[in-house]
Amino acid sequence: MCESCGCGIDHERQTTRTIDVYESLLAANTKQAGENRRSFETLGAVAVNMISGPGAGKTTLLEHTIEHLGNELRLGVIEGDIETERDAARIRKKGAPVVQITTGGACHLDARLVHKGLHRLRHESGMDRFDLIFIENVGNLVCPATFDLGEHQRVVLVSVPEGSDKPAKYPKAFLSSQRFLITKTDLLPHFDFSIDEARREALKLNPAIRITELSATAGGQGFEDWLLYLRQLLRTAAAA
């Protein structure tokens, strides 16, 4: 009943109303990510989210990492791809428990997909303790950077053939990562890649980011530094 004119129409329902909301549309993902983080911790695991464009060498780096740490640590891998089980098959061959999430077109993993992936990883491996769980994101330097998956560390990779302008062009991935790996450094003689530019641009965006130059296939100091970084992550987590 309208009180001002007594016309019997509920003007309240007809007039324009402005509703203040102020809710994050990314909040649902962030909430699930927090739950994932706790799940990883319950399993004793440190989770590492690997982000790069397609072909930067994420899977190759993981293959070599499993070769070197597989006997020493309990590793697990959650693979994200738009289509195919190919990456999971490569990891499985190296002897680490792995699940493949195919997003069926989506350009990134989100926290809900990772939650499901983690359930499958536990169920299919029969393991209830892990030291390190790698999440290999969909090959894309843009969209994955927006979505927290519940990881403890985010690692961004750029390979030498891609070019040293990537940090400046894709700032979000570098802003949100703790580690930046310059991969395929064995190819430096063949490409016009400036290590100095890549380092400078990444540090300009994120002064706290740590940078490692490595070649997973050639091995050497950079690759050893990567393994050392992973071992240190576990020590830090154990001390916490």
Partner: peptide, 17 residues
């Protein structure tokens, strides 16, 4: 120097009738 914030998508207000 570091860049911060500005990384969210927020529904602030809706006008309806």
């Amino acid at each position: 120097l570091t860049l911060s914030a500005a990384d969210d998508l927020i529904l602030t207000q809706v006008e309806m009738e």
